[in-house]
Amino acid sequence: MIIRDVEVRNVQEVARGIFVLSFVSLELSGSTLPGQFINVLVQKGHEPLLRRPFSVYRVEEETVEIIFNVVGKGTVLLAAKKRGDIINILGPLGIPFGTGGSFRNAILIAGGLGIAPMPILAEHLRKNGKHIEVFAGARSGDQLALDHLENTHIATDDGSRGYHGTVVALAEQYLREHPLSEAKIFACGPIRMLAAVSAYAESVTIPCELSLEGEMACGIGICQGCPVERLDGATRYALVCTEGPTFDSTTIILRGA
């Protein structure tokens, strides 16, 4: 885990309102695993005060990429960064996805910005010799970021591209018609989508890992701001930042779904 000022290499709008920011950090690019995140201080000063957590989207040689939707003051500032600007990063943080193990087929399900950890995940899965199918959903076709992914199946809420409906419904339909044995699901997205994925995985007894979001101030287990309810365990809550953000779907309860 490191804290560093790093130099922005590039910021690019890859879909409507969705940006990929790359920065230079050999330390991070060499050590970050799929599903891990970094905490970004977008500028010095008190506005905004806190770091923002972002899944690592992709690493390539000495650069690290994050992807984000412009939704608030932090992401507005990030989207306006130029090559050479400095941001401060803390990371890599959290428990990565389990990309090893005996499964042969990886089913990646992403809703909206849940696409964030998928390219780095796909890269590691590929290296481990896994077959990959990607299901990506968005509100509309122009909000899809599908770079660096293969075997993609698309769902949109408005039907403007691909399947008209939820990405989970699409995945269920596809997998019913094209069953994959020895599979494992990796999902990231809104809480309701994750709950649907979790229920589906349980119904077909496919192991499933979810990547969660949580309101967090520190990212390193200190502020205790990001609890998620455990299904069972010695304590009621796990922390998304240090015990997640990736969880086996059978170990947690998704509230607000």
């Binding site: 005060l49 309101e215 990001c226």
Partner: peptide, 14 residues
């Protein structure tokens, strides 16, 4: 155990 989430919210300079 502490309180249920959400437990924190960012505010102006705080």
């Amino acid at each position: 155990d502490g309180n249920p989430p959400p437990r924190i919210a960012e505010t102006p300079s705080g």
